[in-house]
Amino acid sequence: MTLLIASWIAVLLFGAWCVAVLDNLALALIERRSAAGALTAPLYGAAALLRQQQNRTEAPDLLNWKLAPALYLGLAAAGVAVVPLAPGDILADLQAGIVLWGAVEALTVVVVFLHGWSANSMLALIGAYRYVAIGLPVMLLSMFVLIAAALPAESLAVSAIVESQRSLWNVVRQPLGLPLFLLLGLSLSFRGPFNYADSADLAGGTAAEVSGASRLLWEFARLAMLAAVAAMASTVFLGGYLGPVLPGPLWLLLKTAALLIVLVAASHLFARLSPARMLTLLWVVLLPLAFVDLLWAGVVAL
């Protein structure tokens, strides 16, 4: 158990660093400049934030302000705890693993809202409210695709979902599931086209008033959350630890890394819609797609 916990902490730290490096590489590629220093910049940046003073505003909700980044990190960690590394090698082999993911998504919306609310600053507040508008319907999509993935497994446990993919990966059986679930990744860590919380037009949104170690924690948790979503997506849709020749954990790592590359690329390659249009898109286009995914999965599973 202790070893598993230690390895999960290592996974979170390493995963976050990887995402940060991938971010730097993607930015350099799109901007057409050299990517020198991409490997070390996240570490130096973290050191810089640790040396910075932690700000506060006039009459903030200080308790929630400090709690929000820590809880966000806790949610990322809890989400990743249900991912099996190898058969039987799983930190929390829950019977209702994908329902836990639903809870993680719902509480993430709460935590991001609290982060923006507690600064008592207008730009942060707008970010918080915008995030709730988008975060809620995105959750529906991810729940539908996770339920679709649970159909062939006849179980809500993540380990059973992996085992149900021995013959065929879910990404083949239910091809719409993976892209819809990746949207959740962008939304949970509010990046790129789904950056409604910490966006540039709000001067950093919910993080606009945050500096120092609190901000380091917040940014780290965002990266860890993205890594957690990628690990979960590779488990549910790409067969997790299943694969020939190589050991299981390595397969999981490779698949997660591949999905992280996709996620990071998507987060820098697409423009953000205005929140109202995104809302319509989610309910009117993407939600029916999730229905189709469910129907498809249902017909295939029979």
Binding site: I30, R33, G192, N195
Partner: peptide, 16 residues
């Protein structure tokens, strides 16, 4: 304008 559309790297490319 691209900066407001959350396209910072593309904006940097325009400036470059």
């Amino acid at each position: 304008l691209l900066g407001i559309l959350q396209l910072a790297p593309q904006a940097a490319r325009c400036r470059r």
